[in-house]
Amino acid sequence: MALNTPQITPTKKITVRAIGEELPRGDYQRCPQCDMLFSLPEINSHQSAYCPRCQAKIRDGRDWSLTRLAAMAFTMLLLMPFAWGEPLLHIWLLGIRIDANVMQGIWQMTKQGDAITGSMVFFCVIGAPLILVTSIAYLWFGNRLGMNLRPVLLMLERLKEWVMLDIYLVGIGVASIKVQDYAHIQAGVGLFSFVALVILTTVTLSHLNVEELWERFYPQRPATRRDEKLRVCLGCHFTGYPDQRGRCPRCHIPLRLRRRHSLQKCWAALLASIVLLLPANLLPISIIYLNGGRQEDTILSGIMSLASSNIAVAGIVFIASILVPFTKVIVMFTLLLSIHFKCQQGLRTRILLLRMVTWIGRWSMLDLFVISLTMSLINRDQILAFTMGPAAFYFGAAVILTILAVEWLDSRLLWDAHESGNARFDD
């Protein structure tokens, strides 16, 4: 018995066209964080690309023209004298008006014999932002004059995390709450300039795509075929072959399989920071003279006294001054041990922890910024005066060393310790 099946006739004509040209192939790229070699397709503007294995951002879609970056830099340069030299806060102490600005706080630190601690604050609040705007201006002028731009481009990517104007702005709020127990506070004209400078700096850093600047100024022929001998440069993120001198053909720094002496430098910085954190938390970090009496505060006791007036601000200072430094030390110690013992479990967790400490590390400088600003506000000789204690130097040095330890660690070593050939990683 035959089955009668109805015929289905399409209502619209289906047209099949042959592909007349070869589909576009992607360029081969190595991930600078996990060293995976993959094919990167062509990316349009405002599109980002991520590593298929570790999800690290390979290409950032946010990109401004150099002219727009230069305009932002010149605007920031105009704001800087007002943000640093004009009063941020006014207080009335014992019937006398006192003005506080950024430069005055750094000068008070240096004047009291601790120039190293003052230079830490100076670099993060004044030096690094000033280098940022002058570097962008150098790129703008240098591109037109045919100057060598490689050193500036190499420095810009590392400079971003040292620009800490946003953290200093939080420190202004913390210092205001600490001082309000002794005097009446009012915002100064410099505060508005400083807030504007923070906003412009944040926007500029978020749109400063150094890798795209490398592509514009020093374009290189990408690798179009897969080759395990391809290496990625950690300076400019170019994937290719080393030249005859073993250097990256684009930025001219040595092109090595792994960062040289990464573990040794990381261990040295980490152990030194552990040693410095002990006096930083045991010795007094601030000293207040009130009517001839002397009151010393460690980091913890200062947080407890701050909690009596504002528990939320005390929580912020606790996280930045105690929780973050010790968390960074514990995480980095764990990561280094996992590399030495070739741990194969929990790779995803370790990668996330490394990215976390990379982002939060700079916030530990908050305590030094609060001390710097408070020193310029309260300084009335023996009637009422505020000065920093010996722990300030140890704390600042420990924070900087932990930042350097994270920067010096080559994250690809975590993958080397893991089993080879993993296309995915999980716990």
Score class of each variant (00 low, 15 high):
V357T: 10
P41C: 08
P24D: 07
C31M: 00
V133S: 02
N281D: 06
Q382Y: 14
E157C: 14
A272K: 00
A223T: 13
I8F: 08
S411E: 11
R259H: 11
N4T: 07
V317T: 00
H90N: 06
L414C: 10
S119H: 02
F38E: 04
T117N: 04
R412L: 00
A175H: 01
E21L: 05
L276K: 04
N422C: 09
L401D: 09
R362C: 04
A71D: 01
V203D: 03
V152C: 10
G85H: 05
S39F: 11
I58V: 09
P129Y: 04
E157D: 12
A2D: 08
W107Y: 10
D367Q: 00
L154D: 02
P32D: 07
G188V: 05
L347G: 14
S411R: 11
N291W: 15
M147W: 12
F122W: 04
L255S: 09
A417T: 10
V125M: 07
Q104I: 03
I383L: 11
W92Q: 02
A183S: 08
L300C: 09
H90D: 03
T117S: 06
R226T: 12
R258N: 07
F217H: 14
K57G: 04
L89A: 02
E407D: 11
A391I: 01
S308L: 12
E22F: 05
T204E: 07
Q112K: 06
N422K: 11
F217S: 15
D227M: 15
M109R: 02
H184K: 04
M76K: 05
C54E: 00
S305R: 04
K178E: 03
T374S: 11
N101Y: 02
G246V: 13
L23Y: 10
L255Q: 13
R231H: 09
Q55M: 07
V370Y: 00
I311V: 12
R221A: 14
I403S: 03
F192G: 07
L69H: 09
R68M: 04
D99E: 06
A312P: 13
T239V: 12
S262E: 07
D367K: 00
Y182R: 01
R144T: 10
L165S: 12
V357Q: 06
Q7C: 05
W162P: 01
W140I: 15
L377M: 06
F123P: 00
M332N: 07
Y28W: 09
P10A: 08
L165F: 05
T117D: 03
L271F: 12
C54D: 03
I136T: 07
W363N: 04
V232N: 14
Q345N: 06
K13Q: 10
Y168Q: 04
R53A: 05
H46K: 05
Q345I: 14
Q220H: 12
T327A: 13
L159V: 08
P32W: 12
I316K: 01
M36F: 05
G188W: 04
E419A: 02
P6D: 08
T202D: 15
I351V: 10
L413G: 09
L197C: 03
C251I: 00
A56K: 10
R97V: 02
L159R: 01
W84D: 06
T11V: 04
M103W: 03
G171M: 03
L79S: 03
L336M: 09
A128C: 11
H237L: 13
M120E: 03
S286H: 00
I14P: 08
A423Q: 15
G190E: 02
G292M: 15
N281L: 04
R256C: 11
I199M: 11
Y50N: 09
N148A: 05
A70T: 12
P24C: 07
L278T: 11
S376K: 07
I311K: 14
S321A: 05
V331N: 07
I378Q: 00
L153Y: 04
V198Q: 15
V133A: 02
H207D: 08
S65V: 06
S301P: 04
E157T: 14
I360T: 03
V275N: 10
S176P: 02
G113F: 09
E21A: 06
L414A: 11
D416L: 05
P390Q: 09
I274R: 00
C343N: 15
W162S: 02
I311D: 11
R245Y: 11
Y394M: 02
A312Y: 14
M76A: 03
K229G: 12
E22G: 08
A268P: 04
F341S: 12
L154I: 09
L78Q: 02
M147H: 03
V16H: 08
M109Q: 06
L234G: 12
G85V: 05
V195Q: 05
W408N: 04
W359N: 11
Y394A: 02
R59M: 04
I316G: 11
P219N: 14
M36K: 07
L154W: 01
R260K: 10
S273Y: 02
F74G: 09
D99L: 04
M388W: 02
L213I: 10
A385I: 03
K57F: 05
L270K: 08
L263A: 09
N101T: 05
V210E: 12
C54N: 00
D63M: 15
A417Y: 11
F194M: 14
W64T: 13
L169H: 02
G127H: 03
I58S: 13
M164A: 03
E21C: 05
F122V: 14
